[in-house]
Nucleic acid binder design. Sequence first.
DNA 1: CAAATAAACGCAACTAAGTTGCACTTACAA
DNA 2: TTGTAAGTGCAACTTAGTTGCGTTTATTTG
Lengths: 126, 126
Amino acid sequence: MKSIRNTVAKNEIHKLIAGSTVALSQAELQAATKGLCDRVTIYRILDRLTQEGLIHKVLNVDGVMKYAGCADTCKAQHKHDHIHFSCQKCKSLTCLAGVEASYRLPAAYTVMEANFTLSGICPNCT
Amino acid sequence: MKSIRNTVAKNEIHKLIAGSTVALSQAELQAATKGLCDRVTIYRILDRLTQEGLIHKVLNVDGVMKYAGCADTCKAQHKHDHIHFSCQKCKSLTCLAGVEASYRLPAAYTVMEANFTLSGICPNCT
DNA sequence: CAAATAAACGCAACTAAGTTGCACTTACAA
DNA sequence: TTGTAAGTGCAACTTAGTTGCGTTTATTTG
Ligand SMILES: [Mn+2]
Ligand SMILES: [Mn+2]
Ligand SMILES: [Zn+2]
Ligand SMILES: [Zn+2]
């Protein structure tokens, strides 16, 4: 059984993501931590936190991966079907925690994951 | 007024996209055309076709851009709010032309574009 | 507390997608 | 037919993400 260890870098990065209202990219985390650890280490920490179910990935509209903290309600059962919003002005990517999309697609499709992202102007930039 | 010219490469690539049931990436188009033109040229052709409103972009779940033909109904007014399906087995990305998602998000958000992609198993792979 | 060990890390090298600059070629309008 | 701006090829570059490997360190166990 491969155990997962706690390290300073991991805790710091988890705290940053959990305390952020917007999803963060590896580059943003690296800038925010300024030499705390190597960039490769950040990628590996993000993988671990994702595996542990503490954060979830969101692909931004520019193709760059961002990471957001899992909500409290997520602890019971992970479900990340909420819509995300990508602001074209401030470039922020936000989890719209409560907002889910409904759709009806032809059967024969088996859905395993949903990736819904709207882009436009966020409230802060209006 | 900058005009847009027709070239062999452009026509060939447009035909490939228009005749495909799935969205295609630059790499896939390059493989399908085998030395028709440089890879940079493919990127530039894709940009032009997009600008002309003949194709539209779809970001795949792996962060790679794919391109799909615009539907006939699209000629009246472009609107690409339909859902896309990304198959985890055959890696295909399909426009679900008729299928749109409905959602209700907090006002104060101004939506300009929608990017809805479901992933799972497509009918061909079931 | 000390030693063992597997997880975590740093660094260098690599891949893959996409972009840019510039000289050369070609579609097409005049 | 010819001038010219649009299109192309090639080399170089950027940025995100991955991999291999030798070294460090958190945690377990005696
Ligand atoms: Mn979660
Ligand atoms: Mn269209
Ligand atoms: Zn989210
Ligand atoms: Zn589409």
